[in-house]
Nucleic acid binder design. Structure first.
Lengths: 254, 254
DNA sequence: CGAGTAATTGATCATGCTCAAGACCCGTGG
DNA sequence: CCACGGGTCTTGAGCATGATCAATTACTCG
């Protein structure tokens, strides 16, 4: 059971990092314990001194921060195959919370196992470092969206991001994927109110850009949606970096 | 010259990570080339395939993202001693820009040197990983602030954050530190307009919380400012993690 | 001293919030 | 199989935070 979940994690890591067979085996043998969490459960709470990272096997989770007044802002969404909280391996004292957005199956993987793998195989260590850093790039993009884009563009951007990530994770296509999320939750991801999310979704539907419902999102016009979102995929870093091209490489083509 | 700049970087790393003398020497011998950049220069541009990371020796820099329309959002500020763009070591293809906010002295350190140090000394690799991850935590906090706090609280929070980081960097105290930044730049960090930044600063001054001018910020009432910002330092992760407390540790106290 | 940048002020505008009520949807139990 | 109930979605009306536009004043640095 852990193995199949870890296979998804390995696949994820390989989207960004080159990992050989030995390293693959090390990932598959990380072990861990499968757990269920109910919707609204906190998987991690601020202040926790964590000893495990959580691989999302099934369901949706979100990292969030909360103001004194209780207003909640999601800072990241995690889908199946994400090791949400890989951060905690290197920074065990959580300064954030992670919540199950719907009933979730997680695999709790010990930091000790993750660190041992990272130490035994430098490529694994770098893959972990790379993935947490890519997550940081996503945080930064969310910051930029919240700071400088109007509500409808934020909505559109989030839909494009999730679609792209779903497709890379093999959970659907970028234009048609399953997701169970309420407008309240979208509001907390977008820094809006649920009422306004509702109106923005209606606008996107009216423009013929998306269709929603039945726990799915379907994008009817990707180009138009991406344009309205100013969505450019590069920040997701879903490209294994080519070896730094030697300056002379261009000439080899002829 | 590089050595003294690298000493600041080492000091910074040691705020979060335990590094021995050999590791310290490795950091001090990273080498690099000192360069000057004028205000408004881009130190890194989106799409660059970078080969060096940039240590800020003197001055202020910002990572930013820009919308089609040209609206700019800073996603991170970097002060002296910050290795801005340590991220690029593991993700060389920049999906962001870095700009000099005022005349800046940087030390360009080769990725090859940084990676070699990380590979030779696992503790250095982890320190790098930890610092980039802590940066990610700061991005996440900015996201939360932009999404869920009103302008005056965002302003207050940024001032608290910079003060705290300045103090840890040894560049002043948290309540009185030098900084050269325009209201336009603050606006781009806070997702506001310069006009509104001006008004929020006036409000904070009128409440007797801060004093500004002469390239300094002085905080007259830290507690009140932190309260208005809902500032809690934990997200900066300026604490070297205690060894995971064994469950029995509690009993040792008596 | 002069030019350019930055800070400040005022007036109007609009995006997105608040509050409130009603419709819809879906799982549960009678 | 249907009624019930809670959560979610939808709609409307008024409000406010922060944007926009447009001067004017104050620095700063040659």
């Amino acid at each position: 059971m852990p193995q199949s979940a870890l296979a998804a994690f390995l696949k994820r890591l390989r989207l960004r990092s080159e990992l050989g067979p030995a390293e693959g085996d090390a990932i598959l043998n990380l072990g861990g314990r499968v757990e269920q969490r109910a919707r609204r459960d906190d998987i991690v709470q601020r202040g926790d001194h964590t000893t495990h990272a959580c691989l999302i096997v099934e369901g949706l989770a979100a990292r969030y921060d909360e103001t004194e007044a209780g207003a909640r802002q999601y800072t990241a969404l995690h889908i199946s195959g994400d090791m949400c909280d890989l951060h905690s391996v290197i920074l065990p004292k959580a300064a954030w919370n992670i919540e199950a957005l719907n009933p979730v199956t997680i695999l709790r993987v010990a930091h000790t196992a993750l660190l041992a793998a990272a130490e035994a195989y430098p490529a694994i260590g770098k893959a972990f470092w790379r993935d947490t850093t890519a997550d940081g790039g996503i945080f930064a993009k969310w910051t930029a969206n919240l700071g400088r884009k109007p509500a409808h563009a934020r909505m559109a951007h989030l839909i494009c991001e999730i679609g792209t990530r779903m497709e890379h994770a093999g959970l659907g296509t970028r234009t048609d994927f399953p997701i169970t999320v309420t407008q309240d939750q979208l509001a907390d991801a977008l820094g809006l109110t649920a009422v306004h999310v509702n109106r923005m979704l209606q606008a996107l539907r009216a423009e013929g850009l998306v269709r929603t419902g039945h726990k799915r999102i379907e994008i009817l016009n990707w180009d138009a949606l991406a344009a309205c979102a100013d969505f450019q995929e590069d920040y997701l870093q879903f490209v294994r970096d080519a070896a730094p091209t030697p300056p002379a490489a261009d000439y080899c083509i002829a």
